[in-house]
Amino acid sequence: MVGVFAVAAVRPWTALAAAWNKDAFGAKTSADALKGIGAVGAAPSGDIHVEAPEIAENGAVVPIEISSAVPGTSSIAVVIDKNPFPLVAKFDFLEGALPFVKVNVKMNETSEVRVIAQAGGKSYVATKEIKVTIGGCGG
């Protein structure tokens, strides 16, 4: 029985489930979302690359590819200003991972999309406008 309890105690999801930034993801404005992830006053940077369509016909599936050449990038976050909940994702890159991610996101309407890279305790941002023909949040 002791062994069974020991296994249960180290189930990794117990710790990870708690690591969801409720305040930042619950924010209804970009400003509050940025505050929630500690990225207020992020400096514009040309070292963050965002590949996304200029015009997304279907807001339910907007492909975005992001990478950061900012030295020491430890995380990348995606904030979509006009979405009901602007913070879409935050990726923490640990040992062995490159600061790169491709993901499909939903967009409610045409909006600025901010990509925030954090490196050495500082925040950097690149912004791209994506036009949306049919919104994708109401499904």
Partner: peptide, 15 residues
């Protein structure tokens, strides 16, 4: 190597 937090703003059937 990667730990991500995501929201309902990621598309259905995430890739």
């Amino acid at each position: 190597a990667v730990e991500a937090q995501i929201s309902q703003g990621v598309s259905r059937n995430p890739v």
